[in-house]
Simulated scan of single mutants.
Amino acid sequence: MNWALLIIIFAATVGGGIIPMVVRKANPNLPIYLLAMSGACLFGITILHLVPEVYHELGHQAGIYIVAGFFLQVALQQLSHGAEHGHTHLPQGDHDHVSITPLLLGLSVHAFMEGIPLGFQFADPAALSSLVIGVAAHKLPEAMTLITVMIHSHQHGAKLWRILLIFSAVTPAAAILAAVLGSHSVYITNIIVYLVALVIGAFLHISTTIFYESGTRHHELSKRKVLAILAGLLLAFLTLIFE
């Protein structure tokens, strides 16, 4: 287990959550482009590194679990209201009435799923470090959205920090659990492979949803958003140098 990589994930999540705490009048377009770049990066890394791994391990069965993971994320989105891809899908006036427990539950399950591949022993030496880049890029806007909703729901002070720190620890904790259990049991290692396939499906849902929804009224792609997407894809392709 590479602890430095887990610290990067934790720091990216905390950093994303701190932004809405200290910057009350940020450029409204910043989250849009950040989401677009992180979504493209996550999509590219998933296709370049994770998909080949699970197909190598599971063969054509991998496709079944990837599709299942895609629709599992659709179900989780009913709890999280799309916060994992930068949305809440709620009218502006409803923020004061957000149900905190389902939101935190949905995001925490999603965050736990994100951590499972980080504890997996990949055959591709570039897969783990590349995945950390993709997950860290995704966690930053995800945490921004979560804390923004919490602030609008009148969660302040120590409680807000507790929510952020606990949420930030979920993904690293899942990675540690997967690594420890996998190292002690071949059976559990085999189960983790199927879980990784499910997570791939969830990643594909989140990243493609970001492409079409983040900050747009009619699913349009502005020039700046296209540039942000291209930057994210370039970052994903640059991870190939790790091989």
Results as ranks from 00 to 15, higher is better:
L221W: 10
H97P: 01
V67R: 05
Q77P: 01
L35D: 02
S168H: 06
V14M: 06
G39W: 04
T239V: 00
K25S: 13
V74L: 14
I210V: 14
P102N: 09
G215Y: 02
L160N: 06
V180F: 13
Y33P: 01
F167A: 08
I8P: 04
K25V: 09
G17Y: 07
D124W: 02
H138F: 03
M1S: 12
V67W: 07
V109L: 14
T46G: 09
A36T: 07
S207C: 09
F167R: 04
I191E: 05
V180R: 08
E220A: 09
F70L: 15
T216K: 03
T145D: 04
G82F: 03
L30H: 01
L107N: 05
H87W: 02
I229F: 01
I116N: 08
P52L: 09
F70K: 02
A236G: 03
Q77N: 14
F242D: 00
T209D: 07
A136C: 04
I147W: 02
Q121N: 14
S130C: 05
K159W: 07
V54D: 05
A75V: 15
L165Y: 06
I210A: 09
W161P: 03
V98C: 02
S99A: 15
A178H: 01
A123E: 14
L104Q: 03
A26Q: 10
V226T: 12
G182R: 05
S129Q: 12
Q61Y: 13
L165H: 08
A75R: 08
V199E: 07
V22Y: 04
V226M: 14
F120D: 00
L146H: 00
V74Y: 11
V98T: 11
T189N: 15
P91K: 10
A40M: 11
L131C: 06
G63A: 13
T148R: 12
A175P: 00
E53T: 01
L90D: 02
G106I: 11
H49Y: 06
P52T: 01
L50C: 09
G39Y: 07
K159E: 12
I200T: 09
H97R: 13
L103A: 08
M21T: 09
L90K: 08
G182A: 08
Q73R: 11
I147H: 00
A228W: 04
V14D: 05
L5I: 12
E213W: 00
E213I: 07
K159M: 12
Y194N: 08
P52K: 03
A4V: 13
Y194R: 10
I19A: 13
T13G: 11
L204Q: 10
Y212E: 05
L76E: 10
L48N: 09
P117N: 08
H95D: 07
R24T: 12
V199L: 06
N29Q: 15
P31G: 08
